[in-house]
Simulated scan of single mutants.
Amino acid sequence: MARKPTSDAHDRILDAAADLFDRYGVHAVGMQQIIDELGYGKQLLYREFASKDKLVVAYLQRCTQDWDRTLESAAEKSGTPEEQLVEVVRAVQAMAPGTRGCSLRNTHAEFPHPDHPAHRVSVEHFKTVREQLRALARQTSAANPDRLGDRIMLIIDGLYASGSVLGASGAAAEAVDFARDVIRFETSVTVG
């Protein structure tokens, strides 16, 4: 017998879906698997999320909110823009091990068609991230701040791509020092 839904059914469904999507990938998880995980009826799931695409988009939107909180936290913990860039890399370095990588990147890979809503959400997110990192880099003394922002993004991408393989120690732990080195280099280069 299915359990009665609580008033927070929307969030509970999204939590369960996110956990399954993060573990197995979006395509590998069916709506029935989410229903079974929760013990809710199919009708409730489809009342909250009319389709799997709508559920996937909500999941990705939640991931983008997590990124925004990471940036806010970096700003709170650090003083200078240079320190904030390092703190963002440190936050990702702490999260990446033990995951299958970046949820948005993984989902983007699963939905390559540019018209799919999941594809559009992930592409828009990465455009925004790039601009956020570039905007932060523009507050530094870097001669080419857009290049600095892009380099920090590449370090972050590398962490997500390799974090699950490398773990919290080893090469993944070097990412923070690498970010510092890149920032130090970029802010010491003068335009000639």
Results as ranks from 00 to 15, higher is better:
M1Q: 13
A2K: 15
R3N: 09
K4V: 10
P5L: 02
T6A: 13
T6I: 08
T6E: 11
D8Q: 12
H10C: 06
R12A: 12
I13H: 06
I13M: 08
L14S: 07
L14M: 10
A16V: 02
A18E: 14
A18R: 14
L20H: 02
F21A: 02
D22C: 04
R23H: 12
G25I: 00
V26N: 01
H27C: 13
V29S: 05
M31K: 11
I34C: 02
D36C: 02
E37F: 02
E37D: 14
E37G: 09
L38V: 04
L38G: 09
Y40P: 00
G41A: 11
K42E: 12
L44G: 05
R47M: 11
R47E: 13
A50N: 10
D53S: 15
D53C: 03
D53A: 15
D53V: 06
K54E: 15
L55V: 09
V56K: 01
A58R: 07
Y59C: 01
L60T: 00
Q61F: 01
T64D: 08
Q65L: 11
Q65N: 11
D66L: 13
W67V: 05
R69T: 03
L71N: 09
A75H: 11
A75W: 01
E76Q: 12
K77D: 15
K77V: 12
S78G: 05
G79P: 08
P81E: 02
E82L: 02
E82A: 14
E83S: 14
E87C: 09
V88A: 10
V89R: 04
A94M: 09
A96H: 04
A96K: 02
A96M: 06
A96C: 12
P97D: 02
G98Q: 04
T99F: 00
R100C: 12
G101L: 10
C102W: 06
N106D: 09
T107K: 00
T107L: 07
T107M: 11
E110V: 04
E110T: 08
F111A: 00
F111K: 00
P112V: 08
D115S: 13
H116Q: 03
A118H: 04
H119E: 05
H119W: 11
R120N: 04
V121K: 02
V121P: 06
S122I: 09
S122A: 15
S122K: 00
V123C: 12
E124A: 15
T128R: 15
T128N: 07
R130I: 00
L133R: 10
A135P: 00
A135V: 06
T140S: 07
A143H: 12
A143C: 14
N144L: 11
D146E: 13
R147F: 13
L148Q: 01
G149I: 06
D150V: 12
R151C: 07
L154W: 06
I156D: 01
D157P: 01
G158H: 05
L159A: 02
L159T: 01
Y160I: 04
A161K: 10
S162A: 15
L166R: 03
A168G: 15
A168Y: 12
A172M: 03
A179F: 07
A179R: 04
R180C: 03
D181G: 10
R184T: 14
F185I: 14
S188G: 13
V189N: 05
V191C: 13
G192K: 05
G192L: 07
